[in-house]
């Protein structure tokens, strides 16, 4: 699928590929090949930019009912899945993504670290598209804002 190049592998593991404005440095995801989204930027060409593969859980939910097409359930019957909104390190943008199958919703908390892992999304002909998943990681001790 056309979105395959949004995902790449670097020395530390898989990461998202966004775009960076060569004039002001603003990043965007999904990548915007044409222009900077910041209206205050004089504008310049954009370049591909690897995005941090880690971030913090900004919010989370799950989906208990089968969404309508073009979603294709990867299993029959449909299994609920967890959706995370992760604020990339930097701070970068908040990016939505499913959690890997089997992720326990009850263990999730806002602020937990999370990292990108490779997953797949099902297509209508039984094919699988590469997609990013956010894997929540164990808490790493008190955060600055908790002190």
């Amino acid at each position: 699928m056309e979105t395959a190049h949004w995902l790449a592998r670097g020395p530390d593991g898989p990461h998202l590929v966004g775009s960076r404005c060569t004039a002001c440095g603003a990043v965007a995801f999904p990548p915007d090949p044409d222009h900077c989204r910041d209206p205050h930027c004089p504008g310049g060409p954009t370049e591909e930019a690897p995005l941090p593969r880690r971030g913090r859980v900004w919010s989370f939910t799950d989906c208990r009912y089968r969404p309508p097409p073009p979603f294709v359930p990867p299993t029959d019957p449909f299994e609920p899945f967890v959706l995370l909104a992760v604020e990339l390190d930097g701070p970068g943008p908040i990016v939505l993504g499913q959690a890997p199958p089997g992720t326990d919703l009850s263990a999730l908390r806002v602020g937990l670290p999370a990292e990108l892992v490779e997953g797949t999304a099902a297509g209508p002909g039984g094919e699988r598209h590469p997609v990013w998943h956010w894997r929540p990681l164990p808490a790493d001790g008190p955060r600055e804002e908790d002190r």
Binding site: T3, S59, F60, T61, C63, P67, P68, P69, P70, F71, V72, F81, L83, A85, L96, G97, Q98, A121, G123, H129, V131
Partner: peptide, 15 residues
Amino acid sequence: RFRLLGAANPLYFAL
């Protein structure tokens, strides 16, 4: 958002 994430409207409300 549907094909890649299955993110129907109530999921955005829930976030």
